[in-house]
């Protein structure tokens, strides 16, 4: 699974990091999110899906290759 945060949409609600702290990091200065790495490590997919479903701005996009 691949994950990306659309920086133009993200407004720093931080719900992604709340749902999947290993996957998303928040900028120290403005709290906007980015994926630690584009590839989601195995076993973390459900957390990422929860993050996608929780993001109020619908700013997180995943691509499922499997």
């Amino acid at each position: 699974m691949k994950v990306k945060v659309d920086q133009a949409r993200c407004q720093g609600h931080t719900l992604c990091a709340m749902n999947a702290p290993e996957i998303f990091e928040l900028d120290d200065v403005d709290g906007h999110a980015s994926a630690v790495s584009e590839d989601v490590p195995a076993g973390h997919e459900s957390h990422v899906i929860n993050a996608v479903r929780s993001c109020p701005e619908q700013a997180i996009f995943v691509e499922d290759r499997s």
């Binding site: 407004q11 720093g12 609600h13 719900l15 929860n50 479903r53 929780s54 993001c55 109020p56 701005e57 619908q58």
Partner: peptide, 15 residues
Amino acid sequence: REGNRHNSFGLGIHR
């Protein structure tokens, strides 16, 4: 609750 995409902090640039 999961997937709780609430709007209580507003949405968009005025979050």
